[in-house]
């Protein structure tokens, strides 16, 4: 009965978001049928487009995987954007400084990016656990510091010869480029890294003692402590792992997409991943299709702009409407269910 009720609310939420989305389409005078057709065609119409969709999918998967870890520990890691940046900076450092074969350089970029993101995440964690700074604001603050750092590097020590512009660094040497399939922009290696990371996170959380303790800490840290868990150590570990995985998104953005360091390296994917994870209700498996759908919308947005002259922000508006209606409606349903249950349990509060 519960599942049925949940399905009903879910269907209601989807309907609401469809109606609201269509309202916005009507508002900007978008032709409904063409828009819908282009949603599929824009993302999957040609091999190139499929490749590009997957290229966007990669950072979304990685950032979402990172957030699943921190959310499981009950943390709002808004600092994910900064962790992506830190990973990209670390990977760029490797790409600029290390000479060697592609295999060596890429391996070191991945390791370096993970460590960079992990350290940046750990900083948020230490501020929270030791400094009493809420992780939301510590995270936002460090996002800006990371952006400042990247801007400084791009126009300062890592600037192109004689040009101090925010356009980006010199492209990396070819040994630091993630290999691609001919004619496509997506790197299969990046896609593999994303899936390995996500599957590892799912494995970690569902199959290991560490993951179980992390989840227990996130759900009820007092009770988790009674089970002998040193809860603040687990919070820090969540930031290290989450930050590291976000750092990997920075690695693929720098090494597989831009092939250099640019100030907007995170592409806002960290923030978008927060929406994905909220929609997926923190479950790794659901992240896969939802992230793909969000990548699809992002790709379709280009085509809507190109072919129908619609604004590129339309896709973002639809994403926002979808997540907002589902989170509001499902939150309401859960609140009701919770209240009913607490009424049945009754007298614990007496």
């Amino acid at each position: 009965m519960n599942a049925l009720q949940q399905t009903k609310y879910f269907a209601g939420a989807i309907t609401i978001s469809l109606v609201v989305s269509i309202f916005f389409l009507w508002l900007v005078e978008a032709p409904l049928v063409d828009t819908a057709k282009l949603l599929v065609e824009g993302a999957f119409g040609t091999n190139q487009r499929i490749g590009d969709t997957f290229m966007i999918w990669v950072p979304l998967l990685l950032a979402s995987a990172s957030l699943v870890v921190t959310f499981s520990a009950g943390l709002w890691n808004i600092g994910v954007e900064g962790q992506i940046v830190a990973g990209a900076v670390a990977a760029s450092f490797v790409a600029r400084e290390v000479q060697g074969s592609t295999a060596v350089v890429l391996t070191l970029m991945v390791i370096g990016g993970f460590v960079g993101g992990a350290l940046w995440g750990l900083l948020v964690g230490v501020l929270r656990v030791r400094g009493g700074v809420n992780e939301i604001f510590g995270g936002i603050g460090l996002n800006f510091v990371a952006t400042g750092l990247i801007v400084y590097l791009v126009i300062g020590p890592w600037s192109r010869d004689g040009v101090a512009s925010t356009g980006g660094t010199e492209p990396f040497g070819p040994q630091a480029w993630f290999p691609t399939i001919d004619g496509l922009r997506v790197s299969p290696l990046a896609l593999i890294i994303a899936f390995v990371a996500l599957v590892s996170v799912m494995f970690l959380l569902s199959k290991t003692h560490f993951g179980l303790r992390l989840r227990a800490t996130g759900k009820n840290s007092l009770a988790a402590n009674r089970f002998g868990i040193a809860t603040s150590r687990y919070l820090l570990m969540a930031f290290i792992i989450g930050g590291g995985i976000a750092g990997l998104a920075g690695v693929t953005q720098a090494g597989a997409v831009y092939h250099r360091l640019v100030p907007s390296i995170s592409g806002g994917y960290g923030f978008l991943a927060i929406l994905i994870v909220l929609l997926a209700r923190f479950r790794g498996l659901w992240v896969i299709p939802i992230a793909l759908f969000f990548a699809t919308i992002a790709m379709a947005s280009f085509q809507w702009q190109l072919r129908l002259g619609l604004h590129s922000a339309l896709g973002g508006v639809i994403q926002g409407v979808l997540v907002l209606s589902i989170v509001l409606v499902m939150g309401y349903q859960e609140g009701r269910q919770h209240r009913e249950q607490s009424n049945i349990r009754g007298n614990t509060a007496l």
């Binding site: 709002w76 808004i78 929406l275 909220l278 922000a313 973002g316 508006v317 994403q319 926002g320 997540v323």
Partner: peptide
């Protein structure tokens, strides 16, 4: 969202940040 529907205020705020940003660009 936070008072009547009892949804996490942080979640609603973050979603609205994204939504309003995109909407401002669109409209």
């Amino acid at each position: 969202g936070g008072i009547r529907l009892r949804v996490n205020q942080i979640a609603v705020g973050l979603i609205l940040t994204y939504f309003a940003t995109k909407l401002s660009a669109l409209l």
